[in-house]
Design a protein around this nucleic acid. Structure first.
Lengths: 128, 128
DNA sequence: CGATGCATGTTATACCATTACGAACCCGAG
DNA sequence: CTCGGGTTCGTAATGGTATAACATGCATCG
């Protein structure tokens, strides 16, 4: 059994729209943008987003309740995000390089980490 | 002019309720719990939560859309959270010890960090 | 007193996310 | 071929999170 490699129509539409945006987009942003392409209800967007997250093609930004395309197609492991509060740009960076101290803390507490969220809010180079 | 040091009635109610909970509580959890004390509308809870966050007495957990009392009253700087998906317990830990690598990344990008969110989801020692 | 500032109260609305249910479709087993 | 199972799709309804807008009460300060 091969894992599903192609995207459905809705997934493709949502993914393409996210890859074309520097900013994180909410599910309802995506819905509004894609109504002309046949998406009509929030649940359709959330279903596509869920699958794309499962495939590792996009990430959810918890502090914005919004979504961005993954920009590290090759990498394994978790990602962190730097979010500019002025222009909205989101930049992804790989976490494994940075996580060792936190992993160590968790190991000391016998806490088994399943998912790590790291989000930096502030000003990007051009907006500071 | 002395900075306001005492809490208003609503702020006190919300803060006390949070300090009595191991888990993060949503604004609506708090509203339901405090209706008997005179809180009637979401906006009243959100106002109290906002002030408590300003005062550094509580933290928002982005990945839960919920709130916890700060358990490091003395410390300065940012906090991270380990959240057990089984029992809901939230444990706070001080971040400054762990952030150096990420700060270094941000400095290299000329990104000025104003707030850092670190949330670990997983299983705590007793639930794993 | 009058002005200011802050906390409050109330209503309404906007925004985010999921549940439930049924129809359509693809594809492999019998 | 036809029957199932699994996945996608469509639609409606609902539940959960957060803020806007506006009016009122009350303390303080000049």
């Amino acid at each position: 059994m091969i894992g599903k490699s192609v995207l459905t129509r809705h997934q493709e539409l949502v993914y393409r729209h996210l890859t074309g945006s520097e900013k994180a987009l909410s599910a309802y942003d995506l819905l509004d943008a894609l109504r002309g392409e046949g998406l009509r209800a929030p649940v359709q967007v959330y279903r596509a987003l869920g699958k794309l997250i499962d495939h590792g093609l996009i990430h959810r930004i918890e502090s914005l309740n919004a979504f961005v395309a993954c920009t590290h197609e090759g990498h394994q492991g978790a990602a962190g995000f730097a979010i500019c509060d002025a222009c909205g740009e989101v930049e992804e960076f790989p976490l494994p390089d940075h996580l060792a101290p936190i992993d160590h803390w968790a190991a000391g507490r016998a806490f088994r980490v399943e998912h790590t969220t790291v989000e930096l809010r502030g000003r990007c180079q051009t907006c500071r």
